[in-house]
């Protein structure tokens, strides 16, 4: 349950680190899930399906980038438009796919690691997309915080005017991050037909894209925290089901609120602690369009 959230959150982190808020995740996830399903159905190739999903997701995210970066439109509104547009597209073209199915990915245990008690089988007896998500967490963390690219990306998110003065192309870096971020979000959508539900139904992702929007902020724009955030949220849902199996007498509609309330509480505690320590993690230029030539 945590994996699609993780992919999408990572995509959001990349995009927002460069200063572009990404609210359109639900739309991208639905369209990429649809594309994955269609390509897999037509070709039977998981790799092609994934490539197709990432291309579609990149294109949609590029549209978001075009509106936000080139047309300097409001990022939150554009994201919302993307969410609606993607939901609409997947609904309009998805109806024809009902009643077909694809195969889902097999689990590949990692010898040795899967034998670690409790966590071993949870983390190391998974399909290859899960392992890919681990690699991406580490990779994104490395790129953002230990490479020159990462420095440029973060600088563009913090102080685009300075970057511009130093000769960096703010627009180019933002486009790259928004499009690659979109592709990561697309992996989150692809995970549904690839692993979770290898059939098509309307609104397959059932609102997970919106949770990912919240998780990006929850993770304070950090890939490592995104990892814990996504799995914590997944675990909260699993707990809600497990509590019923174990016969705990908590009304299930109250349990239903639990993951959301937990997220709010943790976010509040962490925000307060960070403020005490004088830290703000939000990229300073997040959400602000960049006007080249503006010298305040």
């Amino acid at each position: 349950m945590g994996t699609p959230l993780l992919f999408a959150t990572l995509g959001g982190v990349l995009s927002e680190r460069a200063g572009v808020i990404h609210l359109g995740m639900e739309g991208i996830m639905l369209v990429s899930a649809l594309v994955t399903f269609v390509v897999d159905l037509q070709t039977g190739s998981k790799v092609l399906a994934l490539v197709g999903a990432m291309m579609a997701a990149g294109a949609l995210s590029g549209l978001h980038g075009f509106v936000c970066i080139s047309l300097r439109g409001n990022q939150i509104a554009s994201g919302l438009a993307l969410a609606l547009f993607g939901t609409g597209l997947s609904g309009l073209f998805g109806d024809a796919l009902i009643g077909s199915t694809v195969t889902s990915l097999d689990r590949i245990p990692i010898p040795g690691l899967e034998l670690i008690p409790i966590l071993g089988s949870a983390f190391f007896n998974q399909d290859w997309m899960v392992y890919l998500s681990y690699v991406l967490v580490a990779g994104l963390w490395f790129v953002l915080f230990h490479t020159n690219w990462g420095l440029q990306i973060r600088s563009v998110g913090e102080a685009p005017i300075v970057c511009d003065a130093l000769g960096l192309s703010v627009a180019k870096i933002r486009y790259i991050c928004v499009i690659f971020g979109g592709m990561l979000i697309g992996l989150g959508g692809a995970y549904f037909p690839m692993v979770l539900t290898s059939f098509w139904v309307d609104d397959l992702t059932a609102g997970r894209g919106w949770i990912a929007v919240a998780l990006v902020i929850f993770a304070f724009w950090h890939p490592g925290k995104a990892f814990w955030g996504a799995y914590l949220f997944g675990a909260a849902i699993a707990f809600q089901l497990q509590a019923q199996v174990m016969g705990l007498k908590i009304p299930s509609y109250i349990l239903e609120m639990f993951p959301y309330l937990l997220t709010i509480v943790v976010l509040t505690v962490v925000t307060v602690r960070n403020r005490r320590a004088g830290q703000t993690f939000m990229p300073a230029a997040l959400g602000l369009p960049f006007f080249r030539g503006d010298k305040h």
Binding site: L63, L71, G73, A81, G91
Partner: peptide, 22 residues
């Protein structure tokens, strides 16, 4: 047509209006 066309048009409209803000 499925109800999804409503979302589709809402999304398109929002895009064009924000895009026009330039």
């Amino acid at each position: 047509l499925p109800i999804a066309v409503v979302y589709l048009f809402e999304g398109l409209l929002l895009f064009t209006v924000i895009g026009s803000e330039l």
